[in-house]
């Protein structure tokens, strides 16, 4: 390469970069082009390149779905809650147990959410659960676990095309608890515990006054599979938060015929 080309460069001190002219001669450019053409290797393509790309596409979709799930769960709850909350005005919950303030009720029943890969929880007597398919492109399911009876919902939402359902919304009763569960996919993150946050629109629509959330990796979860739990509470009394925490703490994935181990590189 011509050694004097440096002196011909227009990038002098104090000169604006945009005015700098090309510093090399045509011969130098030609030499560089030739060098690049000769020196840049021609590595062979891996035999499974297309398969690797396909796996990357799937991983990208999972990551995007996880982000979508985290940001859109509240909206999905708002859309879907009217389907699952019961008609009429349910009675308020019973007074806290006499065992003392802060003592959660003992789990007395087991509920299993088949569409959430058989996610299983221990819930107090009188609680119920439902799953509802969302109108997301992936057709994911949202699970609801509540301190009141949830009625069966049509599947998918009868007016899913416009994202709303025809059933009029119902309110959680005082001291009502509604837990929304959704699967997330992504790398393992530290569990910050059950955190309070500003009450979201969906929770307000359901009659909630306080909202908590957590991301858990329940027992039996495959690598990279987490559960986003949103707890909506309506005027909670002492012990209601502890009760919700106990319910979330009981989550586990139940192995069984319907359980499918998600693989990060699955096709």
């Amino acid at each position: 390469m011509a050694g004097n080309a440096a002196e011909t460069a227009g990038a002098g001190p104090g000169e604006p970069a945009g005015s700098v002219e090309y510093a090399g001669s045509a011969e130098e450019e030609r030499a560089l082009r030739a060098l690049l053409e000769q020196a840049v290797p021609r590595p062979a393509a891996p035999a499974e390149r297309m398969e690797r790309i396909r796996r990357r596409v799937l991983r990208r979709r999972r990551r995007r779905r996880a982000v979508w799930g985290a940001t859109a769960t509240a909206a999905a709850v708002g859309v879907l809650l009217p389907q699952v909350l019961p008609a009429g005005d349910p009675p308020p919950r019973q007074a806290p147990p006499a065992a003392g303030a802060g003592t959660p009720e003992r789990p007395e029943a087991e509920t299993r959410l088949a569409e959430l890969s058989d996610l299983t929880l221990q819930v107090p007597a009188g609680w119920s659960s439902r799953t509802v398919r969302t109108d997301s492109p992936e057709g994911d399911y949202v699970g609801y676990v509540a301190s009141l009876s949830l009625r069966p919902s049509p599947e998918p939402c009868p007016t899913g095309a416009d994202g709303t359902c025809t059933t009029p919304p119902r309110q959680l009763p005082r001291r009502g608890t509604l837990i929304t569960l959704r699967l997330l996919y992504g790398p393992k993150k530290p569990d910050p515990g059950l955190q309070a946050r500003e009450v979201g629109k969906a929770c307000v629509v359901a009659g909630g006054t306080e909202e908590l959330w957590a991301v858990r990796s329940p027992a039996g979860a495959a690598e990279g599979v987490h559960v986003l739990a949103t707890v909506c509470l309506a005027t909670p009394a002492t012990g209601d938060v502890a009760e919700a925490r106990t319910v979330l703490g009981s989550m586990r994935f139940e192995p069984g015929p319907k359980y499918r181990q998600p693989k990060r590189n699955a096709r």
């Binding site: 390469m1 050694g3 440096a6 510093a23 090399g24 030609r30 030739a34 060098l35 020196a39």
Partner: peptide, 29 residues
């Protein structure tokens, strides 16, 4: 243009001149 000039100046100092000349003569487009 300015980025080209800076890059060439850097490469000029890193790549021996003989290499560039031989590369240009042996297989260059």
């Amino acid at each position: 243009k300015s980025q080209s000039a800076k890059a060439l100046r850097t490469l000029r100092g890193l790549l021996p001149a003989a290499e560039l000349v031989e590369g240009g003569e042996s297989g260059g487009r």
